[in-house]
Design a protein around this nucleic acid. Structure first.
Lengths: 130, 130
DNA sequence: ATTGACGTTTACGTAAACGTAAACTTTGGC
DNA sequence: GCCAAAGTTTACGTTTACGTAAACGTCAAT
């Protein structure tokens, strides 16, 4: 279990983004890869951060929001006030996520309806020319 | 059942957006309200369109994507080729939505973990000072 | 008659998230 | 020793989705 490392193009390929994107994330302070001389060397932790950032992106989070989300995991919270604030934060985020799930479910229902109509039309259309 | 209409500020309040936002949507061709002289007059159909656009936004769709989504509903599809293309489109969108749901579920699990840790820390902290 | 609330157009500004291009270095392979 | 592939920095450009401000019209109420 030697410490896996990755080049920038390794990760770019894996996540189907450009190297520009990954450098941009570093520029914004979202990741901080080590250097092998001039070249960036990504740890698995870096890799996971990118993965989580992209996951956040898929549901419409901004990069900043994704990072805030990720940073909830590491214990940067010392006192009780911070802990309570974090819990409140978590509750608010959960509400948003649940709303998003409701939105998605509504859309899925809509898609089912439309697809049903389409297939009915196609079936009906095939009948008459015969 | 008189045809309900709305002023721009009615809808701005209802959806908690600015009037600028609503005018912007019109500028982009997303809605086409009637006019009472100079003033915009929104039908319930306009209102629903805005509602659906904002729903799309919440899960990270662009305005354009939301409109394409909405326009799947009205039957602009004449021939079978278009119908089949639409069905393919629907399938692709469904895949995206399902992926988003998976992403959200993962995040919810993460939130549960972090919240659990927080509450455990808070409970432990409260014990010793007593 | 004026004030305020609401409406309008026009237009420049802005933040986010990269794309794109230039110009240069480093490095493994033949 | 040289070339192509992959890396680097710097910097300007682009799209999306509005914000913000100016400058003006309309109408009901005081």
């Amino acid at each position: 279990m030697s410490a896996q490392t990755y080049s920038i193009s390794d990760l770019a390929k894996e996540f189907e983004v450009t190297t520009r994107t990954i450098r941009f994330y570093e520029e914004k302070g979202l990741i901080s890869p080590l250097r092998n001389g001039q070249k960036r060397l990504y740890s698995n932790a870096d890799r996971v951060r990118i993965k989580l950032i992209l996951r956040g992106k898929r549901i419409g989070m901004t990069l900043q929001e994704s990072v805030e989300f990720i940073d909830m995991y590491d214990p940067e919270h010392n006192n009780d006030d911070q802990l309570r604030a974090l819990v409140d934060n978590i509750k608010a985020r959960r509400e948003r996520l649940l709303q998003q799930k409701r939105d998605i479910d509504e859309m899925l229902i809509g898609l089912d309806e439309v697809q049903g109509n389409c297939e009915a039309s196609l079936a009906a259309g095939r009948k008459s020319p015969l």
